[in-house]
């Protein structure tokens, strides 16, 4: 109510001045920043969007070898942080991930079949949710993200599962075949997550604990580990 009245009075004030050809060249109100904010960096709660890019790389012996960095993840997400104290916070994040695995074509290949192609790519788009704990290493910090470690778990639904193979025919033309809704790729995946960060930048690692291929198929699993850089879209 008060703000509305103030606005009305201020508009009248402006009109009165302009009618007399006086210019208001500066008008400022006292900042309310002198109170500790409840929302914002290192405040009770903080949220922001982020983008990330990471590479999928074979980590375990029984995993399918993939090409790096052609095997990668593009991520767009939203992160919420709840502050417990200066050094501890917990949060959740939701993200949309576009995963790409470019399978190395060699004699060890054991994905789908052992036939070698010019290119064999699995495209898996998924939505994930994560819960994580944030440990901050800056003992005394203000409205500042600082140095931190995130540890958490995640789970996701693979809403798009595709396989693409590319070959060169006898007449040297390129052919591409798309397999959509590939049944032997699991619908769900889950795993662990860790990141070290400084301000808006995080080096993250996601580890998929679950199988991505149906275990009954006896295929070598696609790489479980993703390393990458996340950039927070905040001040």
């Amino acid at each position: 109510m008060k703000n509305k009245l103030f606005l009305q009075l201020f508009v009248v004030f402006l009109f009165a001045l302009s009618a007399n050809a006086q210019d208001i060249i500066l008008w400022e109100k006292v900042s309310h920043n002198t109170e500790k904010p409840k929302k914002g960096i290192n405040s009770t709660s903080f949220n922001h969007f982020y983008v990330a890019w990471g590479v999928n790389t074979a980590f375990l012996n029984n995993e399918t070898s993939v090409k790096v960095p052609a095997s990668n993840d593009y991520t767009f997400g939203y992160r919420q942080i709840f502050r417990l104290n200066n050094n501890l916070a917990f949060g959740f994040k939701g993200q949309l991930v576009k995963s790409r695995f470019s399978v190395t074509q060699n004699a060890d290949k054991n994905v789908h079949d052992s036939v070698l192609h010019k290119k064999e790519i699995f495209l898996i788009n998924h939505v994930d949710a994560s819960l994580y704990l944030r440990i901050n290493f800056d003992r005394h910090r203000g409205a500042y993200m600082g140095h931190f470690l995130d540890i958490g778990a995640w789970g996701g639904y693979n809403f798009m599962r595709q396989r693409m193979i590319e070959d060169i025919t006898v007449d040297k033309s390129k052919t591409r075949i798309w397999h959509k809704g590939v049944g032997y790729i699991e619908k769900y995946q889950y795993g662990a997550y860790a990141a070290i960060g400084l301000n808006r930048f995080l080096f993250y690692a996601r580890y998929r604990v679950s199988d991505l291929f149906d275990p009954c198929k006896k295929f070598s699993q696609l790489p479980a580990l993703t390393f990458g850089l996340e950039v927070g879209l905040h001040k």
């Binding site: 004030f13 009165a16 006086q22 210019d23 208001i24 008008w27 006292v30």
Partner: peptide, 23 residues
């Protein structure tokens, strides 16, 4: 003693009305 709002007006005429806003 707190200044709650402030500003500058470019005076172009010898006299003009001021609307007092004690907001």
């Amino acid at each position: 003693g707190v200044v709650c709002q402030w500003g500058i007006i470019h005076v172009k005429t010898k006299s003009f009305p001021i609307i007092i806003d004690n907001g």
